[in-house]
């Protein structure tokens, strides 16, 4: 009898298996992004609230690293499976159409392979910038997160880069957040239109919520 390991390998080998994994890891990452935004919005409650939240997370110790490792694994699986599928898909259409038009495919759905890698690069930059403190001249290593965020976003090019990245995140999520249900085989004509609208609403909420922070800082509402 095929072992679970063999079964997993064979499942991953198939396009549908890869898609299912992209869906599951995508769901994990979307949930994380929502939680991350809600946590960060505590900046509107003031310096003490945000810094207390940061200390609470840091006090988790090994558990924090466990969560970070889990997220990193999800990101790696999401990216590797996506790139493998992309290569397969390119090979399946060796010659392009002279004329190409789209009836229904959205801009977001056709550009997942473009927005994805840019977001991956942004995540690396974001961790270096606000967690490690690189490219951040005024970084305070005593876990004064409030100061680090405000000082970091006073730099206009930095804020612009974050805002652009959040627009791309919005596009990526607007397709991904409903696509994950379809890929997992969950589709019912009664619920799918609601799921699709919810995905767009979630994408807009993520975009507006996240960019409100650099904009508030640049506008001087948060100082």
């Amino acid at each position: 009898m095929a072992s679970t390991f063999q079964r997993t390998l064979r499942f991953y080998e198939a396009t549908i298996g890869k898609k299912a994994l992209i869906a599951v890891t995508g769901a994990i990452l979307v949930l994380y992004v929502v939680g991350h935004m809600i946590g960060n919005l505590q900046i509107y409650l003031g310096r003490e609230a945000l810094n207390a939240y940061a200390h609470k997370l840091h006090d988790l110790g090994p558990l924090l690293w466990l969560v970070r490792g889990f997220l990193l694994l999800a990101v790696v699986v999401h990216i590797v499976a996506s790139i493998q599928l992309w290569l397969m898909n390119r090979a399946a259409r060796p010659s392009r159409y002279v004329r190409q038009s789209w009836v229904k495919a959205t801009f977001a759905s056709r550009t997942m392979i473009v927005t994805g890698p840019i977001l991956a690069a942004f995540i690396v930059y974001h961790v270096l910038h606000l967690t490690v403190g690189r490219f951040h001249p005024g970084f305070n290593h005593e876990l004064d997160v409030y100061h680090n965020v405000v000082a970091g976003f006073r730099n206009v090019p930095t804020s612009v880069a974050y805002i652009v990245a959040m627009a791309l995140l919005g596009y990526h999520v607007s397709h991904g957040a409903w696509s994950m249900f379809q890929s997992a085989g969950l589709h019912h004509p009664r619920y799918m239109p609601i799921v699709q609208k919810a995905a767009v609403a979630l994408a807009i909420a993520l975009f507006v919520g996240n960019i409100s922070i650099p904009i508030s800082i640049l506008a001087g509402f948060i100082r």
Partner: peptide, 25 residues
């Protein structure tokens, strides 16, 4: 290739087969 849920197939299908079938598969 693999399906990436863009829905272009459903849009051009002369028999209007829906994406719900792909989810069933």
């Amino acid at each position: 290739g693999a399906c990436s849920n863009v829905g272009e197939c459903e849009a051009v299908c002369p028999k209007k087969i829906t994406l719900e079938n792909i989810a069933r598969m």
